[in-house]
Design a protein around this nucleic acid. Structure first.
Lengths: 166, 166
DNA sequence: GCTGAAATCGCCTAACG
DNA sequence: CGTTAGGCGATTTCAGC
C-alpha cells in the first residue's frame, strides 16, 4: 500500500482536508489550483491508498457530558508478543479507551480514556483494566484542563523539510 | 454556550458525523430518520452551539513521513496560573506538539508530539522544550507502535447511561 | 499518463405549510 | 418537521495536452 509518491498538490489536498474535512470538492479544487474532476480523483486515490483513513466530526466531549479524561500508564507482566497483542485487543474492545500506544521505557502502554464521570472511570479501572489478564501496574493521571488538542500532523514542518532539501 | 439540551436525533447525528464526517446531508438524514432540511438545520445548530468544533480528515502520519510519535511529561518550576498559561501558550506555538493536557499528580503536563524523524524531535526537545521558560523536567517516551487511535467520544456509553436512567 | 470542459445527476438549501 | 423547487456541487464522459 502507498507505493505512490505524493506531489505538492496531493500534500496541499491533505492539509486542506485535515483542516476542514467537509470542504466541498470545488472549493478544495480552487484552493489547490486545479479543476474539480482531477481534484476529486486525487482525493479518491488518497483514500484508496490509505493516506486518508477517514473523516470525523470533532465533537466537544465536555459539552456532551464526558467530563473525565484520563491518561493511564500500564505495565504488563509478560512482554511476549502474544501477550502484548492480547492486551492491545482488549483495549480495542473497551469503548472508553480511545487510544492505546505501546511505549519504550519503564511503562509498556499509555491509554487515553474518556468517561462521563469519575465513578464510571473508577469502575472501569478497578473492574476491567486492573483486573485484566497480564496487567501488572496501572498509574492514572486525570486531565485537569486541556490546553491544545490538534488532530493530525504538522504539515508545515513537512513543507519546510521538503523546501530545504530542494 | 450550549444551553440547549440534545434529543436522541441530535445525539445520533453527532455519532454519525463522528464516524463519517463527510457523509452527505441526505444520507445523514436517512440514517437518523428525518428529512434532509431539518437535519441540516440541526447540524448547523450543533455547529453554532459548539457541539461540533470542526471536521477533519484523518491522515496516516507514518505514510506521510511522520515516523516519530512521542509522549512528553513535563514538570514546571512554578505552578502559578500565569506561568501555567504561559507554558500552554508556548505549546500552542509549537506545530510539532499536537496535544497538551494539564494533569494532576507528579507531572504537570503531558504532550503528544509528532515529528518526521528522531533527530528533528531531539532538536525540538533540547533546543525548544527543555530550554523553555519555567520547564523543570521532561521525560519522553517513544511510541513503539499504535494499537488503537479512535478520535472523539464513546457514544455507546452515553446511550447506555441514558437508557438506564430512563 | 495527466488535465480540463461539458453535461448529467443528485444534493444542498432556501421558502412555505 | 415535511414538501417543493431552484441553484449549485458532484461525478461521469469525452476531448486535448
Amino acid at each position: 500500500m502507498a507505493a505512490t509518491r505524493l506531489d505538492e498538490i496531493d500534500r496541499k489536498i491533505l492539509a486542506e482536508l485535515q483542516a476542514d474535512g467537509r470542504m466541498t470538492n470545488v472549493e478544495l479544487a480552487r484552493r489547490v489550483g486545479i479543476s474539480a474532476p482531477p481534484c476529486l480523483r486525487r482525493v479518491r486515490t488518497l483514500e484508496e491508498q490509505g493516506y486518508i483513513r477517514g473523516y470525523h466530526a470533532d465533537v466537544d466531549a465536555r459539552e456532551l457530558g464526558f467530563e473525565v479524561q484520563v491518561f493511564a500508564m500500564v505495565g504488563l507482566q509478560s512482554q511476549a508478543e502474544a501477550d502484548l497483542s492480547a492486551f492491545e485487543a482488549r483495549c480495542r474492545s473497551w469503548p472508553l479507551v480511545r487510544e492505546c500506544h505501546m511505549l519504550n521505557g519503564e511503562v509498556d502502554f499509555i491509554l487515553k480514556c474518556v468517561a462521563p464521570d469519575l465513578s464510571t472511570f473508577q469502575r472501569f479501572l478497578t473492574e476491567e483494566l486492573t483486573a485484566a489478564d497480564n496487567v501488572a501496574s496501572v498509574k492514572t493521571s486525570l486531565v485537569i484542563r486541556g490546553a491544545k488538542d490538534e488532530p493530525g500532523v504538522p504539515f508545515d514542518i513537512l513543507e519546510e523539510r521538503l523546501n530545504r532539501s530542494a
